[in-house]
């Protein structure tokens, strides 16, 4: 086994493709076997048939391998995601520890922000959003009337009923 050329590592830039990998791997196997059989005097066609015989239903075998590879890929991605997440968290904590003043400012900012939001929301929730504490409160109405001066059409006052 010789060493892999450097450029090959960039083939994985977009992540691996389990389907293509299975195809390539099986193709390598069949081609190597065909070469061997041809060297033994088989015709190209007979060699190919002989090489494929051990695979049985090759499409089914490929499907099995592809499924296993995809499951493995998913597990690895998940593991990687959690590892990255832990890494980020540790980095963040370290950064906060080395600059305590900044940390204090950040915490005060967040505390004041949350405090103010909660205070305003509590008031709005009680005054505007929560239904009034009577039965069928959505059918409550506010009734009043206004009087108009006949000659000028001007509003002159009203009264609660």
């Amino acid at each position: 086994m010789s060493t892999t050329p450097l450029w090959r590592r960039y083939l994985r830039f977009w992540g691996s493709d389990p389907g293509a990998d299975v195809d390539d791997e099986f193709a390598f196997h069949v081609e190597t076997r065909v070469d061997e059989l041809v060297a033994q005097g088989f015709s190209a066609k007979a060699a190919r048939e002989e090489a494929l015989r051990g695979f049985g239903d090759i499409q089914q075998v490929k499907a099995i391998c592809r499924t296993l590879a995809e499951e493995r890929e998913r597990t690895m991605q998940r593991t990687q995601w959690w590892a990255d997440w832990r890494h980020d968290l540790r980095f963040a904590v370290r950064q906060l520890i080395v600059s305590p003043l900044l940390t204090a400012v950040l915490m005060v900012t967040i505390a004041v922000g949350i405090g103010a939001t909660v205070a305003i929301f509590s008031v709005l929730n009680a005054v505007l959003l929560r239904p009034l504490p009577w039965a069928d409160s959505d059918r409550l109405v506010f009734v009043y009337e206004t009087w108009r001066e006949v000659s000028t059409g001007e509003r002159v006052g009203g009264s609660l009923p």
Partner: peptide
């Protein structure tokens, strides 16, 4: 049989018993 060999390889790769990489 190749039809058993490759699924076995993929199974043990999934279990983490072997690692695979492309070479020449």
């Amino acid at each position: 049989e190749e039809g058993s060999l490759y699924p076995a390889l993929y199974r043990i790769e999934k279990k983490g018993w072997v690692d695979a990489s492309w070479g020449v």
